[in-house]
Design a protein around this nucleic acid. Structure first.
Length: 559
RNA sequence: GCAUCCGUAGCUCAGUUGGAUAGAGCAAUAGCCUCCGACGCUAUGUGCCGAUGGUUCGAAUCCAUUCGGGUGCACCA
């Protein structure tokens, strides 16, 4: 179904190879001009002819065939019109036969991708700032699987640092076992907030001491810590379940405690380590970066040290072809440094490490702060969205069965989609108005389109075979073309680590289908026309479902 | 100060391996349910694509400078 390739193979330009012709083929601004176009301007110098005459000569030489029905030369562009009936027939049958696998491929066969995402902090509830990494990572996870990769989802737990000393100190001062059991993670967080507001020098010292106790294997400190950890994991599991994300490993920072020394030894052996102001660093001045700190002046390890150990461990354990870090752009420099240090250590695989950076989330009145307790919890956002969905269903479709289940799919979908619809690098100012808006370019719009398509299919009875030689009209053909590019869109999304491509694709397809739906009758038609339109409806529904599924969004049959 | 990202319609954003008249949604106005789901569709308008210069047959897209904003920059993670 690669029409560009088909065209490129049939054009000969002296001194230009087929690959270059292939990559030069573009899409005309509107479909009346054609379905594909080859701009001939860049060939003018090589051939020493005007683009207009080149296009004209190529047009004369091109023999139309079963795929390309018309070729025209316009102002230096060579425009191609495809055989609409043929394309429509191929696309519909392809989707009908592949079904929920439509768009999948084996490009990733034999390759492994590690994705480090979500990476929750122990004892901290999920707030909207954690949403992006979780759903972007989750979507990439499902996308790579769909493309045939072996994928390893890693939740690099934030379970290391003096903050855990603070927590234990706070718990021992004010905590109560039953209250924490009952209040769960929010009760722990309250203790943390209280510690930060009341802490003086003495308490800070106590916290450092407790952290040291955890490190040295003190039984009581570790018991409390493990208890907090299990409460946290139980809690996040509920959220992950709703968001449809999963992990294959929960190896967090503490996991690397005993894996850092070999890295430090290697750095020293390779003469990369240097003392500076009492600390051990890798100097990166040559690369116009500040130094990468490996050991503090008191000998303790740092964030970067653990990330170096983690990268080594992942390479040794999973032998990845790519390792992605879905982490906010605040850490651009950190990852640049870590990757550079690994490169300097001679790890040829350092080039396979990718920081998938995304924008930050703030509130309308400024940045969030867990320590100050100024946050929007993700559960609240999800709950409000689900409630809103329920209210809308109650209003528009009160007879519906399973209203709770459907409201859940719609509400959760809106939360996920809102976080995935824009380019990931964009900052987000969180507002309830925005996430609760269900109109326009939203998952609800796509889900509604699915419900509409599904309703048509329910009323249609058995589908007959797609008619051959059916000449689609303009609206039908727009849908067909959009359906056909789905596999390409997925490849691009994977290549650019950009789930938003898929979200936008789904909205585009839904828009094109809705335009078709309004313009064209389906059920009251007969014969080939009806068969074609029903098939078009069925494969559109399938493709919309496939797109949303990758994003972790479910599609209700009715809503 | 150095590094890095962003700047497109009133708002939120697409569009950037250079290509033909710069597109959506929201908001506004006017329409469309005796007809397959109106959470939908149609029509109407707004743009020195932050600015300047350069490269090119051609620049929102590439380069340089500049302005505005975000983020990061030594013992937190």
């Amino acid at each position: 179904m690669d029409y560009k390739k088909h065209i490129a193979e049939r054009i000969n330009i002296y001194g230009v190879d087929a690959d270059e012709i292939y990559s030069s083929i573009a899409l005309p601004p509107n479909s009346e001009m054609g379905d594909y176009a080859l701009p001939c301007f860049k060939f003018a110098k090589i051939l020493r002819q005007s683009p207009v005459s080149i296009a004209e000569k190529l047009r004369e030489a091109y023999k139309t065939d079963e795929k390309i029905s018309e070729v025209s030369a316009v102002n230096g562009y060579l425009n191609f019109k495809v055989n609409k009936a043929g394309l429509a027939y191929d696309v519909l049958n392809c989707i009908l036969s592949t079904g929920e696998k439509y768009g999948s491929s084996d490009t990733g066969k034999g390759k492994t991708v590690c994705i480090d995402y979500s990476s929750v902090n122990i004892a901290k509830p999920f707030h909207i700032g954690h949403l992006s990494t979780t759903v972007i990572g989750g979507a990439l996870y499902k996308l790579y699987k769909f493309l045939g990769y072996n994928v390893v989802g890693i939740n690099h737990l934030g379970d290391y640092g003096t903050q855990f000393g603070k927590l234990i100190s706070a718990y021992k001062r004010w905590g109560d076992k039953d209250e924490v059991e009952k209040g769960g993670i929010h009760a722990i967080n309250d203790l943390y907030v209280r510690f930060n507001t009341e802490a003086d020098e003495e308490m800070e010292n106590e916290a450092r001491e407790y952290f040291r106790l955890i490190e040295n294997g003190d039984r009581e400190a570790n018991e409390i810590f493990e208890w907090f950890k299990s409460l946290t994991l139980k809690y996040v599991q509920g959220i992950y379940c709703k968001l449809g994300v999963q992990f294959d490993s929960y190896a967090g920072e503490r996991f690397y405690t005993d894996k850092m020394q070999p890295v430090i030894d290697e750095l020293r052996a390779k003469n990369l380590l240097r003392e500076s102001e009492g600390a051990q660093i890798v100097d990166l001045e040559k690369y116009s970066m500040p130094p990468c700190l490996i050991l503090r002046s008191d000998g303790a390890s740092l964030y970067a040290t653990r990330d170096l150990a983690a990268a080594e461990y992942r390479k040794a354990t999973y032998d990845f072809d790519k390792c992605l870090y879905v982490v906010a752009y605040q850490q651009n420099l950190h990852f640049k440094q870590v990757f550079k240090v690994l490169e300097l250590m001679g790890k040829e695989w350092a080039k396979d490490l990718v920081h998938v950076a995304y924008g930050m989330v703030s509130l309308e009145d400024g940045a969030m702060s867990t320590r100050k307790g100024k946050v929007v919890w993700l559960e609240d956002v999800i709950n409000k969205c689900v409630e809103k969905a329920y209210t809308v269903i109650e209003e528009k479709n009160p007879e519906l069965e399973n209203k709770n289940e459907i409201a859940e799919k719609v509400g959760v979908g809106a939360v996920i989609f809102g976080a995935l619809y824009n380019n990931k690098i964009k900052d987000i100012v969180f507002s309830y108005d925005k996430v609760l808006s269900f109109e326009g370019e939203t998952s609800v719009y796509v889900q509604y389109t699915c419900a509409r398509a599904n309703s048509v299919l329910l009323k249609s009875g058995e589908l007959s075979a797609v008619p051959e030689n059916y000449e689609p009209n303009a609206q039908e053909f727009e849908v067909v073309k959009q359906l056909a590019v789905f596999p390409e869109i997925l490849e691009e999304a994977a290549e650019k680590f950009e789930p938003s491509y898929i979200a936008r694709y789904a909205v585009d397809l839904a828009q094109k289908y809705n335009k078709f739906y309004i313009e064209c009758k389906i059920l009251s038609e007969t014969g080939g026309k009806k068969a074609f339109r029903l098939a078009l409806t069925k494969v559109t529904l399938q493709t919309l479902k496939n797109s949303l599924k990758i994003l972790g969004i479910g599609v209700p049959d009715k809503m």
